[in-house]
């Protein structure tokens, strides 16, 4: 799989480097011995994120975005491929110190917090594990609460007693408590109401500029990604089909799938005609299928070549690459 030159930006080495990430989920057992073929949730995904940069990862459900997020946050081992931070590859087990440099925030804020432990204790816990003393912990929590805009009184509450938006801030605070360099956010706002969603997006943007946080932002919503990210990678069936600067990808999408995603978005204003939607088959989730392009069965511009060979990710412009045989002519 082609990679390095196409998504390297000028300005030194990337902070985080995912190379050829592949994850195969074992198939369900059928009978005593027989096992089916595994599902390729992610197949050969490579990308780089520079310090202070925010990379968006968009795709439909089943496209493998959560799996990538878990591999990058070192909560899931890749079947093959590596993730490295500052040139040091993730290992299993990973030294505590290095593990603390990448933290994650997930969508289900209620599920990610223990309902029977007070919020303050849950934010504090990583620091206890990492051996901070009491004063250091108190000081850090005070400054965090200010950073994420939560009142101090919330520390004594239980997760079930606070609103969804506040819980999401708690998760962000907990992720930031060890001052990580990379924050992986998996759909952190999709369960929130619009007004609260905007608050959390703004918070992430502020944190990013204040603390020079590097963010991998996973979302199904290109509109949110546009607000927060510098670059975006579009996933389809476990592969990156397009990657590039956010404005470039949205203004000149170079893969039919990216175009379909953009066209499917509701308009910003009433009366703006949306293009009628494409083919009515639903997305696949297995990256291992067939010889041709995985998107061929849904593509409106499909050609004979698309059914015969799978297109590789190729650079179109500096920093912008697409995995479509006809990327240049779209």
């Amino acid at each position: 799989m082609l990679q390095s030159p196409l998504n390297r930006r000028p300005g030194g080495l990337p902070l985080l480097h995912a190379e050829n990430l592949t994850r195969i989920y074992p198939p369900p057992r059928r009978g005593l011995l027989r096992r089916g073929v595994g599902v390729h949730a992610v197949a050969g995904v490579s990308f780089e994120i520079h310090a202070g940069e925010a990379l968006g990862l968009v795709g439909e459900s089943g496209s493998g975005k959560t799996t990538i997020g878990r591999m990058v946050s070192a909560t899931l081992l890749p079947t093959s491929g590596t993730v490295s931070l500052d040139g040091a590859t993730f290992t299993n087990p990973m030294p505590l110190r290095r593990r603390a440099r990448v933290q994650a925030v997930f969508q289900d804020s209620l599920g990610a917090l223990n309902p029977r432990i007070r919020i303050g204790r849950q934010i504090e816990e990583p620091m206890i594990i990492h051996g901070f003393d009491r004063d250091a912990r108190a000081g850090r929590i005070a400054s965090l609460m200010a950073d994420v805009g939560l009142p101090h009184s919330i520390l004594a509450r239980f997760p079930g007693e606070v609103s969804g938006g506040q819980r999401q801030r708690v998760l962000i605070a907990r992720a930031l408590v060890l001052k990580p360099e990379v924050l992986v956010c998996d759909e952190p706002v999709s369960a929130l109401d619009v007004s609260v969603q905007a608050q959390v997006i703004n918070l992430l943007a502020e944190l990013r500029s204040q603390h020079r946080l590097t963010i991998l932002f996973i979302s199904h919503d290109l509109r949110v990604v546009r607000h927060l990210c510098d670059r975006v990678a579009v996933l389809y069936c476990g592969r990156i089909v397009e990657i590039g600067p956010i404005a470039s990808v949205i203004d000149t999408p170079s893969h039919p799938y990216t175009r379909a995603l953009i066209d499917a978005l509701p308009p910003d204003q009433p009366g703006q005609r949306r293009v009628p939607s494409g083919r009515s088959s639903d997305a696949g989730t297995d990256a291992s299928t067939g010889a041709g392009c995985a998107f061929a069965s849904r593509c409106l511009q499909v050609e004979k070549l698309c059914l015969e060979s799978a297109p590789a990710l190729r650079p179109l412009r500096p920093g912008h690459a697409s995995a479509c045989h006809f990327a240049g002519t779209l």
Partner: peptide, 19 residues
């Protein structure tokens, strides 16, 4: 506070407080 594809602002408008 609706994020829009057609414009990228520095900050999204938001409604302070909660319901």
């Amino acid at each position: 506070c609706l994020p829009r594809l057609s414009r990228q602002t520095e900050r999204l408008e938001s409604i302070a407080g909660i319901v």
